[in-house]
Write a protein that binds this DNA or RNA. Structure first.
Ligand SMILES: [Zn+2]
Ligand SMILES: [Zn+2]
Ligand SMILES: [Zn+2]
Ligand SMILES: [Zn+2]
Lengths: 172, 172
DNA sequence: CTTGTCATGTTATTCCATATCATATATCCG
DNA sequence: CGGATATATGATATGGAATAACATGACAAG
């Protein structure tokens, strides 16, 4: 996001990837608020970009660029890799989508509009992805960086494991 | 590593990726200690595997699988992708090498033999990589995971930024 | 109208990674 | 030792991720 950033209240920062919620309105709301954010910041949420964001919001999990591309093709958009990658680039640059490096895949941001360095919990069983807030600068990494004189610009924090549902299933 | 694990003293845990050191003996020592660790644990550090580890120790930065493969070819080893990937798989599984997800590349471990969840500092200018210790369970991610009921099995922690050298150069 | 900027489309290529089948080499046991 | 078993390597083929390069269309500013 280029401007108009504001901190988001703490109670909006809870991970939403696990557990139930009204998904239809969840997607609706996210799209509406994305449109508004773009309007406010002079960004163009074009049809392809909007479609990709919508796809990622529909799933609460990561989609690979080629899965996205397949769906774009079905919807009548361009079907070559750059089409997907450019839309994803826009969405990532502006904070609507995050890339999960571990999976080479993309997921919709859970609290867009807020400047934040995200951390992710990735279920290795069901592929669900939940976003939480990383305490970048604090913690041992921040300390090590300061000690070494390393200037952190961006962090990747991804935890892999079992989500609550899959843990329950594994136990029974 | 399958057995014989021991914690490593704290003072061996400092990042060694940035700053000068006697690199030749650094590589020597690491190779020798890898050989010993393998002997102790019934692991087979075969010629290909040893060569790959040596290559990664030579650089204190991440190498892609195909860069590794090129060098293997030059040394008269097999030159097909699986050759490199199998050696890397062995080295990663046994803690001699880490994968840098952000770069889809591999780097030699700075404190092998110790059970540890590594964190990395990656210079975007010169590609140097330093390894530090991540405080996985502590910090906000651990808290979020406990709150959500997510069971962490493995973490990826990678910071991207400028190393001390490149910071100095940028300033002048 | 012209120019510059931004978004989209298309082609081609490069890089990363794995499945599969075949062959060799240890290691174990009778 | 000889044969069974597991492990390691070799080689072929394919799939998936990402970008380079070039062309076209939309649109706003001058
Ligand atoms: Zn986010
Ligand atoms: Zn799950
Ligand atoms: Zn390590
Ligand atoms: Zn640097």
């Amino acid at each position: 996001m280029t401007s108009g950033m504001r901190p988001v209240p703490e109670d909006h920062m809870a991970p939403i990837g696990f557990g139930d919620h009204d998904h239809d309105t969840c997607v609706e709301n996210a799209l509406t608020s994305a449109e508004q954010l773009c309007r406010e910041n002079g960004l163009r949420l074009t049809p392809v970009r909007r479609k990709v964001l919508e796809m990622l919001l529909q799933e609460h999990r990561a989609l690979g660029a080629y899965a996205i591309l397949d769906r774009l093709r079905e919807e009548g958009f361009g079907s070559q890799p750059p089409v997907a990658y450019r839309a994803l680039d826009f969405l990532v640059r502006n904070g609507f989508v995050h890339k999960i490096e571990r999976l080479n895949a993309f997921v919709a941001c859970s609290h867009p509009g807020a400047t934040h360095s995200p951390a992710f919990m990735i279920c290795r069983k069901c592929d669900a992805v939940a976003e939480a807030q990383a305490s970048t600068a604090k913690g041992s990494l921040g300390a090590a960086a300061r000690a070494a004189g390393f200037e952190i610009e961006r962090t990747v924090v991804e935890a892999e494991g079992l989500c609550p549902d899959c843990t329950k299933k594994a136990r029974k």
